[in-house]
Write a protein that binds this DNA or RNA. Sequence first.
DNA 1: CGGCATCCGGGAAGATACTG
DNA 2: CAGTATCTTCCCGGATGCCG
Lengths: 224, 224
Amino acid sequence: MKLEKVTDRSGRWYDDACGTAHGLELIGERWTLLVVRELMFGPKRFGDLRASLPGLSANVLTQRLEGMEASGLVVRRKLPPPASVQVYDLTDWGREAEPIISELGRWAARSPGHDPTLPLSPASMMLSFRTMFDARKAGDAEMRLGFRFGPESFVVEVAGGSLTAQRADTGEADVVILGSPEAVASFVYGGGPPEGLAIEGRREVFQGFAGFFELPPKAESARG
Amino acid sequence: MKLEKVTDRSGRWYDDACGTAHGLELIGERWTLLVVRELMFGPKRFGDLRASLPGLSANVLTQRLEGMEASGLVVRRKLPPPASVQVYDLTDWGREAEPIISELGRWAARSPGHDPTLPLSPASMMLSFRTMFDARKAGDAEMRLGFRFGPESFVVEVAGGSLTAQRADTGEADVVILGSPEAVASFVYGGGPPEGLAIEGRREVFQGFAGFFELPPKAESARG
DNA sequence: CGGCATCCGGGAAGATACTG
DNA sequence: CAGTATCTTCCCGGATGCCG
């Protein structure tokens, strides 16, 4: 039976009462944390998850979702008619894993081996805004930006020294940016020109927004 | 050659510019983060690492240490004579992974499936103090506690609403606790009597110290 | 004994093809 | 579209053995 496989973890686990070890048992398997990342802005369908994680094959995704459902990270839900499709969503507790993702990302951005030119999913891009936002640089600026990555759109709001990002319609934004997550990252973090982006509305707002972020310095690798 | 194996990650990696994904490439392999945890309080020898991670076999530990050295997490160092033994130590950057360990532990402690009766290493115990310390509960208390787990000893200091824990001689402590990490955890987090512990010095200081910690409430597993 | 290489069995990951 | 079935490849973990 399938349930046995999910719960029979004989030998493969850490036998360690440390919370960190238990955390690794929950989200330490390959791909699991990236699935959490992709669900962080709301439910997704099986196929959408596959599309945003190109290296992940269908059978492994099935296994991961089963395991995550069994440990209470994820719920499988049917959208109400007329959609009537099945989606996967994080539980409240699963969504509370965001600080882990943030800390991991913040730390790894300092790695000498980090290659920022690889593909980037929309959810990654939005999460990185939350992680890398520098309230000191933003001061008391207030702005609302829309981002459209193909069919997915997000609204990012800066106000009172904090930043929020949500999946939402870009209707009321001061400026709307259309393009790929990679192009947005290259502009905001790379400091280059806004190549490959279509910008509708108050362009200078986006320019100012880009000044609220700075990649941390690379770590020296050979220091003890 | 061996170096090729370490760097040839073709196909097995995430191809994702997100910092989180890169972080998983660095510390996402099985055991890696637990090795970091064990080194968090200072260098250790190969055999000491094995002893504190019972499920980890020698060949896998060798592979992990090689990978961690290659990515700049760990340095291999020879202690000066007369010790003249080889030890592994975290780099500064490697030590900065502590927030990841903390967040993961804090989050996982809320898991319904967490079993706090499993074995616990001294380093885990000390890290959990750093993670779970509640400054509000400590107020302006000041104290210095020594912990002796077999050959390893630590000093924990509470002062000014913050807690520090280091590997150090227990000489100048107000109270010294001798026993197993499991017994300490059971007393501090479980709220039971101090069974299996020998307490030298001001017993009431340890009692008060235990009041500075509280496990967070378990998460509801079936909520979206 | 500490550190590392080698061999082997079991199992997880990845690719592809297939089904409702 | 949402998975399942199958097959291959590679990793994990245990045992053994080699050198200092």
